[in-house]
Design a protein around this nucleic acid. Sequence first.
DNA 1: CGCTCGCTTGAAACGGCTCAACCAAAGTGG
DNA 2: CCACTTTGGTTGAGCCGTTTCAAGCGAGCG
Lengths: 240, 240
Amino acid sequence: MLNYNVQNTIFHYLDKISLINNNVSKNYLFEIQDSITIIQCKKGQQFVMEGAPVNGLFFICKGRAKVLKTGIYGKEQILRFVKEGEIVGHRGFGTRKKYGISAVALEDIVLCNFSNEVLEKMLKEIPTLTYNLMLFYAEELNKSENKVKAFAQMTVKEKVIDTLIYLHRKFGQNPKGYLNLVLSRKEIADFAGTSDEQVIRILSTLKKENQIFTSGKRIGISNIDLLKKEISEHNYFINS
Amino acid sequence: MLNYNVQNTIFHYLDKISLINNNVSKNYLFEIQDSITIIQCKKGQQFVMEGAPVNGLFFICKGRAKVLKTGIYGKEQILRFVKEGEIVGHRGFGTRKKYGISAVALEDIVLCNFSNEVLEKMLKEIPTLTYNLMLFYAEELNKSENKVKAFAQMTVKEKVIDTLIYLHRKFGQNPKGYLNLVLSRKEIADFAGTSDEQVIRILSTLKKENQIFTSGKRIGISNIDLLKKEISEHNYFINS
DNA sequence: CGCTCGCTTGAAACGGCTCAACCAAAGTGG
DNA sequence: CCACTTTGGTTGAGCCGTTTCAAGCGAGCG
């Protein structure tokens, strides 16, 4: 019962992560707490680096981040955005020795890291945890495969619209109708798989069509259903 | 011990599937054999249909198939090719009610189907099975995310070359150097995310460059390392 | 023998990318 | 406090790659 305060903090943060919360008992967590690390990250900081040796799994306790792969000439492809309660650094175990993705904080965030060893131990001892993590991966795989199809078949305009719908779905909008996540045009482009100029053009067009409105970097969506119609023929919206 | 022959057949086929073989005991399989179905499929037959209610997981016991999503105007996006021992119909459990993908036999194949119920039972009772299935998904997710990046950043030529390398890696080549899987130009295009005309053009170019040689639909690779160099700057080969 | 299907090639139209210039906002330093 | 610099947003124009349309070819099959 030493440093009760610290323990309290860890448990407070772990409480935000449903995968842990629903599958791992408080007693269990108490026992392994020394293998769990709470990390604070500043905006823009990279906490997972593609190609670096795997160092366990990260959970987002607070704040938001982007997950990406770096391609030729440093062009990045953003794969997804993550928020409180979600997992980063998947595939950080098994035979794999290096991370396949990078992760960068979009704001000041709090992370929780489970070491390789404790993670493996947990997965072996808590079947429901493993089961639910498996479901998580299966779901992520489905999303990723949807994105593959989207990239292969959509026009740039559709990809940008799809990105807006994704952001709306995942982060919602504030009372004034603006998306709750503010990104640079380049970040939108890196997610949609195009250039920032192209994104700006599409946004301008959408503004003229009264589909969206902007204020600086902020983007507001006039009518989400109307926007969805624009790509409904593709029968595809990235879920969550 | 009735119909010993049939049992023998089931076990013979199950033996090909390492995920089952390595994690489920013969006794266990014997007990649940009534929930396992062996299915024969003719070439071209569709055995998983996108949007149809989930009916368990399929394992390929013999032969090869393509896994795809159908897009606008019936344009299909092939996500991967599968061979003996591999899994199709993932995500066919959990909260998901419908298949997210279709699967079509590329030749006469033999499948093994585990019903939803028995699958769930197995996953709850055999932790190592769940663990290994989780690793499988994690690996598939990694591959899929590589494909997302590839689609966003590669030129058509690179995507076609990448497809050839993928096929070479996954199915190998015969003594004469031809790829062991014969596909139509359109199927190559549907995997690479382009049109069949484009594929043909690229193949013609590669022939002139002595990178490949063809005989009818068959494609032979002259020097796989040389081919890999063409896209090595992208630092990416689809693994497996 | 004639039909069909898939492969192949050419040419034209389109869309998206890149380059370049301009602008607005915010931050910095004298 | 103002001029300067920097950063990111915006728009236009030209080029290049890709798609699409169209026509020809060759093998396989009834």
